[in-house]
Structure formats: structure tokens, C-alpha cells
């Protein structure tokens, strides 16, 4: 799932200053699962904004809408009836959703209420962690399921670097060293000799470095 953090309230309230009628938009997909921008979080943020604006004496009128998905046109189109009645759209969807809604309703500005962070998993209830950077050229077969691009702070392919101590990354003591995990996994599977293979230089052109990416399946096009 795509994981996001809600932006600091001060930043949100600053962006909203010129506006009275706000369409507060949530998404039922990833941001609901990571408890950042689903219907519940939309309700809480709406309440916070209303309380703040009431205190300031400049009340805000907030319409709360949570779409099934913000990244598919069929759902984004269902927003149509609410657009005319709002001055601005404040979105708690991920960066994709924020942009996609903006592309559909060009006469309204869409403001981000969240900072989109990473593609990750739920490690435990209330804890999400990064697993994939979408480099476009998967190496998980070679590293037995642990991604060095994402989970090593230096994205090194022939680790671990000298900063790995006690299984922990020197950059963040809450993050395991990816290469310790990979070596452990090699050992677990009786494949430690694989460690001696020098991993070749990576082709980054399939990653963001090659420019924005697109996937097309001609057979599905209408």
C-alpha cells in the first residue's frame, strides 16, 4: 500500500486561510489502511478545522467525501456534484489521488493534507514500514526477498557497509540493516556462497531516473 503521514495542522490551516467552503476528500484505499486519510481521519480533520476556525471567528463549511479510489476516473467523476459548492479541495489521498482529482476539476485547486511517503506493509497494528521503491527492475530473486534498493540507506548492492552493527543500520537504529537480513537469509537457505557473487551495476533507467513511467496494455484499452 501507499503510506502517507498527515501534514502538520499548522501547515494545513495555513493553506486553507483564503477559503471558506472546503471539500475535504478522503480515499478508501491505501490511506485508509494506513490510517491517514480514510473516512475516519477525514472526520477528525474536519472537526479540528471547524474548531480552529470557530475559535478564530472565521467559520469553515466543510463537506466530507471519501471516494472508493482517487486514482480511477470512474470514482473521481462522482465528485462532480460537490465541486461547484466548494472553494477549494483539501485531499487526504496520496500524491497520485491529489494530482488526479486536480486533473479532472481544473477550476478548483486541490491542496494536500498529507505527505505521501512510501510503498509499504503493516508490520503490526499501527506500524507501517517501507518495502519497495518501484525501481522497475526487481532483484528480489538475487537477494532472497529483501530489497537492497529500499531497505539499505545507501541502496548498496554489495553490502553491508561498515556501519552495520548489531544488525541495525547506522542511519536509523529502528531499521534493521538490509544486508544483515540478506546474509541471514542466505544462511537460512544454505546459500551463503551466493554472497560471493558481485552484484552488477544497476540499470536505473527503469526507475524514476528514466523519467515518468507508464504502463500500457493495448488489449484492455477501450
Amino acid at each position: 500500500m501507499i503510506v502517507a503521514n498527515r501534514k502538520p495542522f499548522e501547515e494545513i490551516i495555513g493553506m486553507l486561510k483564503p477559503y471558506a467552503r472546503i471539500l475535504l476528500l478522503g480515499c478508501n484505499e491505501c490511506v485508509t489502511v494506513c490510517a491517514t486519510g480514510g473516512a475516519k481521519e477525514v472526520a477528525v480533520l474536519a472537526s479540528e478545522i471547524r474548531l480552529f476556525r470557530a475559535k478564530e471567528g472565521v467559520p469553515a463549511e466543510i463537506k466530507e467525501v471519501t471516494l472508493e479510489r482517487n486514482c480511477d476516473p470512474e470514482y473521481v467523476e462522482t465528485l462532480k456534484p460537490f465541486i461547484d459548492d466548494c472553494d477549494v479541495i483539501l485531499s487526504m489521498a496520496c500524491g497520485c489521488g491529489i494530482q488526479f482529482v486536480g486533473e479532472h476539476y481544473r477550476n478548483r485547486i486541490v491542496l494536500p493534507a498529507v505527505d505521501t511517503t512510501f510503498d509499504g506493509v503493516t508490520e503490526q497494528h499501527g506500524v507501517w514500514a517501507e518495502r519497495c521503491q518501484g525501481c522497475g527492475n526487481c532483484v528480489l530473486d538475487r537477494t532472497l526477498g529483501i530489497c537492497p534498493v529500499t531497505r539499505c540507506a545507501k541502496s548498496i548492492f554489495n553490502g553491508p557497509c561498515g556501519g552495520s552493527q548489531g544488525g541495525v543500520c547506522e542511519v536509523n537504529k529502528d531499521a534493521p540493516c538490509a544486508w544483515q537480513l540478506i546474509v541471514d537469509r542466505y544462511k537460512e537457505m544454505g546459500m551463503l556462497d551466493r554472497y560471493l557473487e558481485i552484484q552488477p551495476i544497476k540499470d536505473w533507467s527503469t526507475s524514476r531516473d528514466g523519467g515518468p513511467r507508464k504502463r500500457i496494455r493495448e488489449d484492455l484499452k477501450i
Binding site: P8, F9, E10, I13, V44, E48, I49, L51, F52, K55, E56
Partner: peptide, 8 residues
């Protein structure tokens, strides 16, 4: 925390 943020 939320109430501190929004000034209540």
C-alpha cells in the same frame, strides 16, 4: 495533541 493543534 489534536486539541492542542487546533487551539482548543
Amino acid at each position: 495533541r489534536l486539541l492542542d493543534e487546533c487551539g482548543v
